[in-house]
């Protein structure tokens, strides 16, 4: 583990902008085009501070709705924060929902090209990725030429996961995405994560399974109500997280 910070988050505020329901809120929005307050504001992250070092494997815990996914999405650049500073050094690969962007009517190969393009692969890099994905997913040529709507759930997960991890990023963000495929594939996924870890990838890992977190991570944080309630070595934070359910 290096000493250089790859992720620095300072005083981060993230809001959700929610539309009300019914004819009145519709009118409000239409009447307020160009003004700021058309949508209702809900604060999700409230002044969050976080620092993650290069090569670190960082666990993120917290009850449902504590803001874990929102934090991950903000780090991945999907959500624009309201205020605060985020500094990220290197490429980020988010593994949030598995299978986003897959088009059921198209074949496996076509999907690799489309999703590959969406996650930023171009030209020769994309071509090379096709082979990597094919090898990793263990799907045959016949499988990959088939429309993916005919895939079993496990095959679909294999394809989706393989596309997501086809290159080794500087920072990997994982949101409980690993429980896919059969046992053999799960082992393979864990191996791939370890491989990335060995290659120096910084990993942020969200899970409710403490065993899994302890296996992979050394340090972690527990989120509560949009703020970090506890940060430190994985055992201490894990203990804190377990205790938080007791009262």
């Amino acid at each position: 583990m290096g000493t250089e910070s790859v992720i620095t988050v300072k005083d981060l505020y993230v809001n959700f902008w929610i539309s009300g329901t019914g004819i009145n809120s519709f009118k409000d929005v239409v009447m307020s085009i160009g003004k700021q307050k058309a949508l209702e504001k809900k604060q999700v992250l409230k002044g969050l501070n976080l620092e993650i070092k290069r090569g670190e494997c960082f666990a993120l815990m917290g009850k449902n709705g504590s803001g874990k996914s929102t934090l991950l999405r903000t780090l991945a650049g999907i959500i624009t924060p309201e205020s605060g500073a985020i500094e990220i050094k290197g490429s980020v690969a988010p593994l949030l929902t598995i299978g986003a962007g897959l088009e059921y009517e198209l074949s496996g190969y076509e999907n690799i090209k489309i999703v590959g393009t969406l996650i930023g692969l171009r030209g020769a890099e994309l071509k090379a990725a096709v082979q990597t994905i094919k090898d990793f997913s263990e799907l045959s040529d016949t499988d990959l030429n088939m429309q993916i709507k005919r895939y079993s759930a496990g095959m679909m997960a294999r394809l989706a996961f393989s596309i997501s991890v086809c290159r080794i990023p500087d920072i990997l963000i994982v949101d409980e995405a690993l429980s896919v495929g059969d046992q053999g594939f799960q082992v393979k996924c864990a191996d791939r994560i370890n491989e990335m870890k060995a290659a120096g990838t910084t990993i942020i890992y969200v899970s409710h399974s403490l065993t899994e977190l302890k296996r992979i991570c050394t340090r972690g944080a527990c989120l509560e109500n949009g703020q970090i309630a506890k940060i430190g070595p994985i055992d201490e934070v894990g203990e804190y997280y377990t205790q938080s359910f007791l009262h």
């Binding site: 999405r73 999907i78 988010p94 949030l96 299978g99 986003a100 962007g101 969406l118 996650i119």
Partner: peptide, 9 residues
Amino acid sequence: GSIIKTIAL
């Protein structure tokens, strides 16, 4: 929607 919520584009 699922892409917008998953990939920064």
